[in-house]
Every structure is written in C-alpha cells, then in structure tokens.
Design a protein around this nucleic acid. Sequence first.
DNA 1: TATTGTTATACTCTATAACTATA
DNA 2: TATAGTTATAGAGTATAACAATA
Lengths: 183, 183
Amino acid sequence: MTSTSPGLAARAARGVEPPASASGAPVESDLGWALGVVFRRYAKASAAALEGLPGGPRGYQVLATTNAEGPKRQLDLAAQLGVDRTVMTYLLDDLEKAGLVQRRPDPADRRARLIAPTDQGVEALCDLERRLRTTEEEVLGILDESERASFRLLLQRVAVRANAVDPLHNACALAETDDVLKT
Amino acid sequence: MTSTSPGLAARAARGVEPPASASGAPVESDLGWALGVVFRRYAKASAAALEGLPGGPRGYQVLATTNAEGPKRQLDLAAQLGVDRTVMTYLLDDLEKAGLVQRRPDPADRRARLIAPTDQGVEALCDLERRLRTTEEEVLGILDESERASFRLLLQRVAVRANAVDPLHNACALAETDDVLKT
DNA sequence: TATTGTTATACTCTATAACTATA
DNA sequence: TATAGTTATAGAGTATAACAATA
C-alpha cells in the first residue's frame, strides 16, 4: 500500500542545517510528516505480517470481510472494499488459486458468484490477525498502556469523522465503520 | 510480498463452510483502519490545497527545501527527498516551466546545476503553507484544543520512534526528525 | 435493455539502463 | 574511470471499455 495517489504533503527540511524557519511556517509539529511516517511504518510492518498472502492487505480484507459477514457477491465485496470490480476478479483468482477462498454460484442469480473463505482460508485468517495485532503493538510500542489507549481513542475519533466527511472508497478502509461508531 | 504464497501457500483446498463469526480476533479498534482513513483524508485534503502545483506534494517539498536551505544540486535534492534522480528531472522540468524554480550552473562543477526557487516560487510557497496549516486544522477539527495537542504529541512520539526504527527513505517523509527530537 | 463477471486495452508511476558532458 | 543530469525503455498497478451470460 503504499503510495497510491499523491504522497503526503510532508514538509521538507533536513540536511545539516536546522530545518530553518522557511517562509513563515515554523514546521514544528508537522501533522503531515508524522502521519506519513506512522502510516508507512504500519503499512510496511503489516505488509511483512501479510507476507505471502495473495493480494497483500486486500487479500486480508477479502478474507476478513467474507469470514465476518458471510458469503458475498463479488460486486458487493468490491464496492465495500473500495476496489474496482476488475481488480476484484484478479484478486479472487489469486486467492482461489491459493485455496483460501471459493467462488460458488449464487442460487438466487445465476450471473453472480458468492465468495466465501475455505477452511484453509479461515485458518490463515486466524494466524494473520494474530500477527497484525502484534504489529500494532510494535508500532505503538513507545507509548505506555494508558497513552496507547488515549491515542487509539483520539485517532479513532478523527478517523470516524474523516470517514464521515468522505466515506471510504479507499482500499484499506474496512467496514468496521458501523462498529466503531457504536463504540 | 507479491502474489505467490510461500508460507500460507497454495495447495488447492476446499471449504464449504459458512461464514462463522470471527476467527478469534475481534478487530475492534483497528489501528490500521483508522490510520489509513486519517492518512488518506489528510493526503486528499492537502492534495487539494496543492492543486495546480506541478508535482503536487513533491513540488511543494522541492520549494520548501530549496527555500529553507538554499540552492541545492539536483542529486542532493533527490536523495534528500527520497525520489529517484530521473523523477527529479521531470519534476524540475515542470516546476521550471511554471516559473517556480530555476536551474543555474554550479560554479564549482560544470556538470551540476543548482536549484533555487524564483521570487514567484517563494510567494507561492508562502501561500501553500498557509493553506496546508488550514488543512491540518480541518482534519483534526473534531477534537478540541487540548485534545488536539495531546493527539499531536502522542502521534509525534510514535512517529519519531517509527522513523528511528526505519529511517526515512520514503518519498514524503522528510527529516525533521532531529528537530522533533529536540522538542 | 440492464447487470454480473471476465477479458483486453490504455494510461500512470516508477525503476533500469543507456547516453552526454563533464570531472 | 567515475559522476551529474538527461533521455529512452520496461515493468507494476490501475482505470476504461468491450464482451458473454443472464436477468
């Protein structure tokens, strides 16, 4: 996941010289810089955790979603995950080849196919989730228990707000939105 | 981390099993989800703020860096910003065409060129920084003053740590690390 | 005629290598 | 010979459009 789109608008400045005051902005607490660094760190770490999984983060999302919410049609799944339906085709091809998901005909509509994880897929998902939780703790490792909780809470509020402003449509935004909102 | 699966590997399998609840992990407060959403929201908002600037965030970085630290050789600039030197060529072509930066011969080495912002470039930079600060406030808008401060602080600590673990090298994460650490 | 899923095509980014002009 | 910058080429990733089967 990396850098899709335009990268972040991180502020520049480095080098031997002190960042300098630039054209007026102190650049002190640079949100863009911090967000970019943390995001990329997490992305990299979780990519490592998802090593070998076809489709990487997206493959994980397919597994997690179909496992949690039951069999889904490709188009619905694609919409929910914010990926193009053509991408979903390739992604499922790979996951199916790996024996992690299964395409089966939708009895209600012979055009459609229902996607469900295989036993092996569920097993793999279990393992992946364990690894991902470890990854999270690693990333937040510098914070103590209560700080970690505060951070998660604040970040979550900002995220829920951001998601409301511009509803997902981003590749990695899962659909726990409802869940989060309830919290 | 491509498509094929070593560890989880393939081997056709089946699995006709229904959804099942979760594989064990509640996925409750998903750090990845929140980080992704917030990051993308900020990236999108700042991209909008940088609308029309050649190279987008990278164009901004070039302006900010050369303005803050003085004229730089292309290769140094590329290394500092974490972009390929060939990309830097295209980027500077665009910025120069827009009249925002200037390539001038390095008196010390006739092979090299020094990059500096034009007056117009400095002016543009000023404006861009103003807009970016507005963007930051928008993204954090849901939090009140003190929460915002807490969040920035916690995020910054996580970021500094993350950056130390895996020093930049990412296109947009520049290096105010030193500065931040001092803070 | 509209929709599901697939396939084929094109476009964007980035990375690699080759080329020039200097050193 | 090595380096700064440029240009050309090839690859991943994604988006667009056309297609077959069904509704």
